[in-house]
Design a protein around this nucleic acid. Structure first.
Lengths: 234, 234
DNA sequence: TTGTGCAGTGAACAGTGTTCACCCTACACT
DNA sequence: AGTGTAGGGTGAACACTGTTCACTGCACAA
């Protein structure tokens, strides 16, 4: 059987396999080529180098986790905002645990020798991901389920940054309304990062899942007001 | 002037400099040797290889951050538990921000090709660090400032792990009393990790410090009951 | 004075990312 | 049909990496 044609997709898929097997360090140009039945310089016809490979990899993974979170929304009734946020959050965590090397590449310690191209595909994919969660918080706000805070309770710098982020993402929100979104993102990423990296192993051994799960539920309870009939923001 | 004698300390110091300049990948045996005015094989008389180098590096950094937190305690009145916990927490964050590559090495995404020697110096240093914060929470408990939870409100698995951790660390606490310690560690590490990795850059630009600071204060407020005269655990 | 062992050296091996000159093949145009 | 050209592959090479090996020089003990 003739070797299949060498495509960028095949290169990314093979790189991904190496990433899974041995982490970012194991993504080795020559080994990718070897597995594709080709020599290393051939890859340079399709990919500009190892950094480009990583860019493609990060983009693909970001897209994949975004898809996973989006798919999880389908399991909820459209008017159940809390359920949707919970589903997306748990899907994010589940993807991270199922794809630890990929998660480390995207959301872990940044590689010092790699700089994502500004305005490149990675930041684009990141914006899609952010937009997904952002729109969920817009839904929550519209449903009066978001525990917002008055703008004048925020320190000026934070308020400015929050407002700027909202406009940049096209979210029709005040600073005090974006805050839960950012707090949620910050803490969710923190909780999942620590769990995935295994920094709770000395406490919970290999399985910190119930604890991490509880932490995520606690976070949701802090961000959202209970579903009571006719409940508004306090 | 004759070259100074080649010592393990000098090797670690040089490796550290490389780590700071270019991240873990930049810790390159040959370059360490070059800077010490020696050839690479010479290092193998003092250090068993690159992994050993990383072990020494991680240990040194863990010790350093522990020292920094310990020193911060000196600035507080001994009976001011909340102040002491705050000081240690902020010292941890400050060290992390001032030593991002080192922080990444110790608390970031684990390197897949490196496995810390079991029972080796890194876990020993980690236990010293954990013990420092643990004893602060023991103080808080003794002062009635800890927001504890009843043991039977915990899921069995979590309760068992918490209790086991307490006994392993020699902390005289129930599971519901260790919980704030672990929650605090988990969230503090999460908050600092995300800030140091720069995953809030899209919101706050280069300086997320006031936001992160607020998050840490919020965490403290959740862990500790206010200082009111004769205040006990609720 | 004669070991003996420690500490450093140069050479080597297998691996890495990347570039270069080259070649072959398929397709377009005259 | 004959010719030109461009894309996609090759092997060789360069400058690196971690690590090992045989070797050398030197200090110090017997």
């Amino acid at each position: 059987m003739p070797t299949p044609p060498l495509t960028v997709d095949a290169i990314v898929a093979t790189s991904r396999a190496l990433l899974v097997e041995g982490g970012a360090d194991a993504v080795v140009v020559r080994e990718v080529a070897r597995r594709l039945g080709v020599t290393a310089p051939a890859l340079y016809r399709h990919v500009s180098g190892r950094d480009d490979l990583l860019t493609l990899l990060i983009t693909a993974c970001t897209d994949e986790v975004t898809d996973a979170c989006e798919d999880a929304l389908e399991t909820c009734r459209p008017d159940d905002v809390e359920g949707r946020i919970r589903a997306a959050t748990l899907a994010f965590r589940a993807w991270a645990l199922d794809h630890r090397p990929e998660f480390g590449l995207v959301y872990g310690t940044p590689l010092m020798h790699y700089a994502a191209p500004v305005g490149g595909p990675t930041v684009e994919a990141g914006q899609r991901f952010g937009g997904l969660f952002g729109s969920l918080f817009v839904e929550a706000l519209a449903a009066g389920r978001l525990r917002v805070v008055d703008d004048d309770q925020l320190s000026p710098g934070v308020r400015a940054s929050l407002l700027d982020t909202a406009t940049r993402l096209g979210l029709p929100m005040r600073a005090g309304e974006v805050r839960p979104f950012i707090v949620g993102w910050h803490r969710m990423l923190g909780i999942v990062s620590v769990e995935v990296a295994g920094h709770l192993r000395w406490v919970f051994g290999e399985d910190a899942s119930t604890f991490a799960h509880e932490q995520l539920e606690e976070l949701l309870a802090e961000l959202l007001v209970p579903a009571g009939p006719r409940a508004g923001s306090t």
